[in-house]
């Protein structure tokens, strides 16, 4: 795997930019896709946001000063793109953020790219009830298996705060699932 510093240098040189960008896309496309997909839930939306994220990275790579790590800069762009995509969507639909979350989960039942069972649907419903920050932290820690140090760099939050958010999020999800399964 190419060293991050070398990749950044190549991305900032006109002659090597195109090939370096190919390497960057190959390195991060899957990780970023799943990161975005867990926020927007729908495949087509995730595809749009992922492409916009890479284009934004390509256009702004000259402004990357190396104050943070490349992956955390990239993840930050992807997170912001996905969150602003949802904000625009809720504004266009004339619904609140929480209403949009409910609708996104409801739509999963008819989504051809979702083959979850009842428990997976309940899990998504539980995650949808979380505040934005707890949702991000839970997904990044539980599913993406990122380290607290990495999440801390991406979300620019203290590790202590992240641990607290993750703990609260986990408890809430467990309680929600327990409550749901008792009704089944």
């Amino acid at each position: 795997m190419i060293a991050e510093e070398t990749l950044v240098n190549q991305l900032q040189q006109t002659e090597t930019q195109a090939s370096a960008f190919g390497v960057l896309v190959d390195t991060y496309k899957e990780r970023l896709y799943w990161h975005i997909r867990r926020i927007v839930l729908n495949h087509d939306d995730a595809d749009d946001v992922l492409q916009n994220t890479f284009i934004k990275i390509y256009k702004n790579i000259s402004n990357f000063k190396g104050n943070s790590k490349l992956y955390s800069w990239i993840y930050r762009i992807a997170t912001n793109e996905a969150l602003s995509f949802l904000k625009t969507k809720s504004r266009m639909m004339g619904v609140s953020d929480s209403e949009l979350q409910e609708r996104l989960v409801e739509n999963l039942t008819a989504d051809v790219y979702f083959e979850g069972e009842e428990i997976q649907l309940k899990l998504q419903q539980a995650i949808a009830t979380l505040p934005e920050k707890q949702k991000l932290v839970f997904n990044m820690k539980y599913f993406e298996e990122l380290k607290y140090e990495e999440i801390s760099e991406i979300l620019e939050t203290s590790i202590g705060g992240l641990k607290a958010s993750y703990h609260i999020a986990t408890k809430k999800i467990e309680a929600h699932l327990k409550e749901q399964t008792e009704y089944l």
């Binding site: 896309v25 896709y33 799943w34 083959e115 699932l177």
Partner: peptide, 29 residues
């Protein structure tokens, strides 16, 4: 207690075609 499986799927060969789609989009821009 929380399942690890999420149930998300994606179209076959999606990641293989992503680079070309991105290149097209960048060229067009």
């Amino acid at each position: 207690a929380i399942p690890k499986k999420e149930g998300f799927k994606l179209p076959n060969g999606y990641f293989d075609s992503l680079n070309d789609k991105l290149q097209e989009k960048l060229n067009a821009e």
